[in-house]
Design a protein around this nucleic acid. Structure first.
Length: 577
DNA sequence: ACCAAGCGCGCC
DNA sequence: AAAGGGCGCGCTTGGT
């Protein structure tokens, strides 16, 4: 018991559609998703929702199009069904079932629904442009009722879901992904507590002061000088230009295939140390420096725009701000408000645990049945206690390693955990042969297509040769990883959904989510209860997905004031020198 | 002036 | 430690 209810409101289901004028048409639905009462028209979506607190699930076209305005009006909803999100998942699923991957007619009609009028005068000034604009659908033809179109598509989706290979899993996925859209909108609105003053202090300390004319800050200018001098008295090398760096090393008799850090590290030359230091700091300056701070942090919050399922695997992405790549050093600026705490929870070794559960490998499930370090448990079972070997072997199996030590250890892994290895091997074979694969809940990999969407793997090989070319093998690595990474995304979104519901109505706010990690910002006195809620949500997600599995999806949870104090956030408090 | 591609690196 | 899976993003270059 964590003291938070699992469910807070009723189960009534209503549909909501906005008209071209921004009014809202709503009606109740029965168990099978058909209209179960008269249609009402309200002056706006917020008015319609506010008047119906008993509704447990709102069915609408797209959370992203409606929910921000509800939140702005101070409203939250318990659950929703996002028709656009569902459509994308169903289409993907049907592609594997052999159906043509084309839009149903009803969908085309729905998609002609107008975007609601866009009234947010909310924030002013030089805001970063949200960029996610796909020029809203064209106006709805006269005489087409947006609510009718919505209901038509929804009914069709329910029928298609019932026809899926595992209807229950598909329902779970659609419900989870819909909840994910709510979480995304709410997190984007809440923002991560961000101390701009701490961030600036950090920049001053690491990068030195800036010069009036713009350009690089002092420390970077100094390091660039050191790099240049290391190549000779009259040499000038711009360390941020790879071509110049390669040239300089070539003149010094050092042949490099790139200027990547890991390659430079092996080179014995006086320019290497200042160059590596420059790269690190240059990165901080360009990606999370003063410009970033000015564009993304307002009123003590960093607000990112989350895109649930933005990656094919189901992982989330963000638009602008690089919210999922906050460097460790910068996390010092993430500090809870006075009287509040950050509950930082990390699903330890999520992907290997997911592999254990989806493959049903007995040995791996046993190793993953406790919250203790999985690689240690693994090493005891197969690698005579060598944790590093165990980790490499497992990651190699999941990522499709083609060389190196991981490959060497793979044999031992295969011997002890045959079902787990066979599971990812089969996914890889499917990819190499141009077939699609699915996650545990039925999320489907994108088609390989010679025109494969935006350069995804699989389209590198032009020829129709039979033998697996480099492109096929890349495709195999992609599908191999997809079944694990994607199933982890399945779990993560179910966990988010469960956690959100447990926190609903409390003062605790979900403020950050990154693949297998969440941060909740809450009053200090609630932190323990929130920690319990997070653990419970993780277990709830696992049970919903796998039933009574022995695998422990252990959350390591910490309560802290500053994100930099999170375990794993590294002791490397940046040696300045 | 603008755009695409390639590089490189941050996170998981 | 090793170099493979998923991303976003800012930079530079080199093409119009």
């Amino acid at each position: 018991m964590d003291g938070y209810p699992e469910d807070v409101r009723g189960t009534a289901r209503w549909a909501l559609a906005e008209t071209a004028e921004g009014r809202a048409r709503v009606c109740p639905l029965d168990e099978r998703g058909r209209p179960a009462g008269p249609v009402c028209e309200e002056e706006s979506a917020p008015a319609a929702v506010r008047a119906r607190p008993q509704v447990g699930r709102w069915v609408w076209r797209a959370t992203a199009a409606v929910y921000p305005r509800l939140l702005a009006a101070g409203l939250r909803v318990p659950r929703c069904y996002d028709v656009e999100t569902a459509e994308a998942l169903l289409l993907g699923h049907e592609a594997l079932a052999g159906h043509p991957r084309s839009l149903p007619a009803a969908w085309a009609r729905l998609h002609r629904l107008p975007e609601p009028p866009d009234p947010p005068p909310a924030s002013q000034g030089t805001d970063p442009q949200p960029s996610l604009f796909e020029a809203g659908p064209p106006p709805l033809p006269d005489g087409v009722d947006p609510l009718e179109a919505l209901l038509e598509v929804y009914a069709a989706q329910l029928a298609r879901t019932a026809g899926a290979g595992h209807p229950d899993r598909m329902r779970l996925l659609l419900a989870g992904e819909s909840a994910g859209t709510l979480v995304a909108a709410e997190m984007s609105r809440a923002g991560v507590p961000w101390r701009a003053d701490v961030h600036r202090e950090l920049l001053d300390e690491l990068l030195g002061e800036r010069y009036p004319g713009g350009g690089l800050p002092r420390r970077l200018v100094e390091l660039a000088g050191e790099v240049s001098r290391a190549f000779g008295p009259d040499v000038r090398v711009r360390p941020e230009v790879p071509a110049e760096v390669l040239q300089a090393f070539a003149r010094a008799g050092v042949r490099l295939s790139s200027t990547r850090a890991w390659e430079l590290e092996r080179v014995d030359h006086p320019a290497v140390a200042p160059l590596l230091r420059f790269k690190k700091l240059y990165r901080l300056h360009t990606a999370h420096g003063w410009t970033w701070l000015r564009s993304w942090v307002r009123d003590g919050r960093f607000r990112a725009e989350y895109v649930p399922g933005g990656a094919p695997s189901g992982r989330w992405t963000t638009n602008g701000g690089g919210a999922l790549q906050i460097p460790r050093v910068v996390r010092r600026a993430v500090v809870a408000d006075p009287g509040r705490r950050l509950v930082v929870a990390d699903a330890a070794q999520l992907e290997p645990r997911i592999l254990a559960a989806v493959s049903g490998d007995r040995g791996l499930m046993a190793a993953a049945s406790t919250g203790r370090d999985l690689y240690t448990a693994l090493s005891e079972r197969a690698f005579s206690g060598d944790r590093a070997q165990a980790k490499l072997a497992l990651l190699g199996a999941v990522y499709g390693q083609t060389s190196g030590d991981g490959l060497r250890y793979l044999a031992a892994l295969r011997k002890r955990f045959p079902a787990a290895v066979a599971y990812v091997d089969e996914a890889a074979r499917a990819g190499e042969e141009g077939r699609l694969v699915r996650t545990h809940l039925g999320r489907t990999s994108p088609p390989a297509g010679p025109q494969g969407a935006d350069g995804g793997p699989g389209d590198a090989d032009g020829g129709p040769q039979r033998a697996a070319g480099a492109g096929d093998r890349a495709r195999g690595r992609f599908t191999r990883n997809f079944v694990v990474q994607g199933s982890a995304a399945d779990w993560a979104v179910l966990m988010l959904a469960a956690l959100r519901r447990r926190l609903l109505g409390s003062a605790a706010e979900l403020v950050f989510f990154q693949h297998d990690e969440v941060i909740v910002h809450c009053p200090a006195e609630e932190a323990e209860r929130v920690s319990e809620a997070v653990r419970a949500a993780g277990a709830q997600a696992a049970h919903a997905m796998f039933g009574a599995t022995p695998v422990d999806f252990a959350f390591s949870v910490g309560v802290m004031e500053c994100y930099a104090d999170a375990k794993g956030a590294g002791e490397e408090a940046a040696p300045v020198r």
